[in-house]
């Protein structure tokens, strides 16, 4: 499955591993923060609506 990477297997794997880790990291952080803020905002908005009634 894994192609023959010759002498540089460690380097290539490390580069792919670290980069994919970083990419997944930034995507996860962005999405999670987005979701958190969305629920918080909904929370604040319902509280405001209740206060206005």
């Amino acid at each position: 499955m894994i192609p023959d990477l010759g002498n540089y297997a460690a380097e290539v794997m490390a580069a792919y591993g670290l980069s994919i880790l970083l990419l997944v990291g930034i995507v996860a952080v962005s999405l999670r923060r987005g979701r958190k803020v969305r629920t918080q905002l909904a929370d604040v908005e319902t509280r405001r609506d209740r206060a206005n009634v």
């Binding site: 962005s30 999405l31 923060r33 987005g34 803020v37 969305r38 918080q40 905002l41 604040v44 908005e45 509280r47 405001r48 206060a51």
Partner: peptide
């Protein structure tokens, strides 16, 4: 995604200030 998040943070802060 991140711009949406920032917009919501702004809005949340404004609402809290007003309340």
């Amino acid at each position: 995604v991140r711009t949406q998040t920032e917009i919501r943070v702004r809005r949340m802060r404004a609402l809290e200030m007003r309340m």
